[in-house]
């Protein structure tokens, strides 16, 4: 009997898996809907995403155009959040800055998630020396405090948005690899996995169709919270002058530029920080709610 046909027991297993998965998704969605802070966080995040996408249409001024007459102006009807030292509109720059922060946050988590998944699944599935090797490398990466390692990697790669994504991505790989490895290790012992293996299912398919759906919950939660951490780290790199280079608007770099004007124009340093805090807070609220909805026992 071949596994590929619809009549085989393997196919039944898959269909069952598919059904329970959609049932489960529905339950999760219902639980999430009742979690008000999570809904609030999710809504704020969607708004930020929209603002970033629509930046050219909704921002009142071009983000990089100096207007020396308005330099250091406090918030007013013309410039709702004031103007910076070159007279550029702070609100417009914050809206454009959302593009950078969200991009870095999402893409760096994508990098970490993909590599962490590959490495963690390989280590957990094959075990033995390969497992030892991969996890020792993860231990070594974990031996560095996050921001410091990201800074050191940026020193090698040079400043810029793409390198910031890579640096933050690399730093976060171990978190995902550890979760995946642990789950794969415990799942591997289940009878249905053994049954699928006995039927000759290929390793890739086994991991993709039978193991992965079962470890999605902790991974999604980790990725949501990881995005907020990545946004904070990106802002830190920008603040230290290692992120996106001027004149591109980036929240951390804007804050750093405002440092010198704390006395005359504190709004320059204040508002980008508010933007970062709101974004990270929204992601954290959503992530917390998602964790409770997916599995109240999860502790991440």
């Amino acid at each position: 009997m071949s596994i590929g046909t619809k009549t085989g027991p393997g196919a039944n297993q898959l269909r069952d898996n598919g059904q329970t998965l959609s049932n489960e998704l529905y339950t999760i969605f219902r639980r999430l809907r009742r979690h008000r802070p999570a809904i609030l966080g999710g809504a704020v995040f969607v708004l930020l995403l929209l603002a970033a996408l629509l930046a050219p249409w909704i921002s009142p001024y071009p983000p990089n155009e100096p207007n020396y007459a308005a330099a250091l102006k406090a918030p007013s009807p013309e410039h709702l959040l004031g103007a910076d030292e070159l007279g550029r509109d702070v609100l417009s720059r914050i809206i454009y800055g959302a593009r950078v922060s969200l991009q870095v946050g999402l893409i760096s988590v994508g990098i970490a998630l993909t590599l962490g998944l590959l490495l963690g699944a390989t280590a957990g599935y094959y075990g033995g020396r390969l497992d030892d090797l991969i996890m020792r490398i993860m231990d070594i990466l974990l031996a560095f405090p996050g921001v410091l390692l990201a800074i050191a990697i940026m020193a090698v790669l040079g400043p810029g948005i793409r390198n910031a994504m890579i640096a933050i991505g690399i730093v976060s790989i171990p978190q995902y690899a550890r979760i995946v490895r642990g789950s794969v290790l415990s799942l591997k012992e289940n009878e249905y996995i053994e049954a699928a293996r006995a039927l000759g299912t290929s390793t890739g398919r086994l991991v993709g169709r039978h193991i992965l759906p079962n470890i999605l919950a902790p991974l999604i939660v980790r990725a949501t919270l990881g995005t907020s951490e990545a946004i904070l780290e990106a802002a830190a790199l920008g603040f230290l002058g290692l992120g996106v280079q001027p004149p591109t608007a980036e929240w951390g770099a804007m804050l750093s530029g405002g440092r010198n004007y704390l006395y005359n124009a504190p709004h320059i340093a204040t508002f980008p920080g508010v933007a970062i805090t709101i974004t990270v807070l929204a992601m954290n609220l959503f992530g917390d709610g998602l964790r409770d909805a997916l599995d109240p026992r999860l502790k991440l």
């Binding site: 907020s228 904070l232 830190a236 804050l255 440092r259 920080g273 990270v280 807070l281 954290n284």
Partner: peptide, 11 residues
């Protein structure tokens, strides 16, 4: 946990 530490410092 949501505030950037360098911003809190500046504020």
């Amino acid at each position: 946990v949501s505030m950037p530490i360098f911003w809190l410092g500046l504020m």
